[in-house]
Design a protein around this nucleic acid. Structure first.
Lengths: 94, 94
DNA sequence: AAGATATATTCTTGATTCGTAATATAGCAA
DNA sequence: TTGCTATATTACGAATCAAGAATATATCTT
């Protein structure tokens, strides 16, 4: 296991705004404005977080007209991780 | 989903030393000295990281003689998360 | 009680992260 | 070209994190 790389992945999800963004993207591709509307954060902030997620290889984006649509690179993987957390949270473990 | 809580969980795993510690604990209960030997970090540093993991509810500890044995509170859950990451890493997605 | 061992805590400093404000860029519309 | 919309980038201060050094505490052992 590559601990540096794995911890970078966790670090990327270790922020509530990014987690919301990722969660939103499990529903499908979204342009920045759409994400902005669903997440409680400014345009600049959402853009910054998307940049971080892109650097981390979690999302990618494509151009559509004058917008940029972001999507998960491995949607099943991300859904799997979130589902695990979700389940554990519901189980109320602390 | 509680995004604050979930992102705190990810943040706790978002450090290579803590990830190594957690990985070690998937093998079973360990006292601080044993963890120290397996992870590349000082006694104080390991202790600090264990404190963080304990605050986050990921590990707990019990006393045994003059030592403290740490263990995962939800070993199956943690193993599940790590297995997912491991699998994805092996698949080489970036 | 006096060491010795195992672990925790505090302090400090440098690095990283976060969010906002301001500005820049790129594509489309008129 | 001018202006508008969508998004990105830069700059900056505040907050948080990371690790080492030093010190404290707690439990054994003798």
């Amino acid at each position: 296991m590559d601990y540096e790389k794995a911890s970078d992945f966790f670090k990327a999800l270790g922020n509530p705004v990014r987690l919301r963004i990722v969660r939103e993207l499990t529903q499908g591709e979204r342009c920045v404005g759409a994400v902005e509307n669903r997440v409680q954060a400014s345009q600049a902030n959402v853009s910054q977080h998307l940049t971080i997620l892109k650097k981390q290889g979690i999302v990618a984006c494509r151009k559509e007209k004058n917008m940029r649509c972001y999507y998960l690179k491995s949607p099943e993987f991300v859904r799997g991780v979130l589902a695990l957390i979700d389940g554990e949270q519901r189980r109320g473990c602390e």
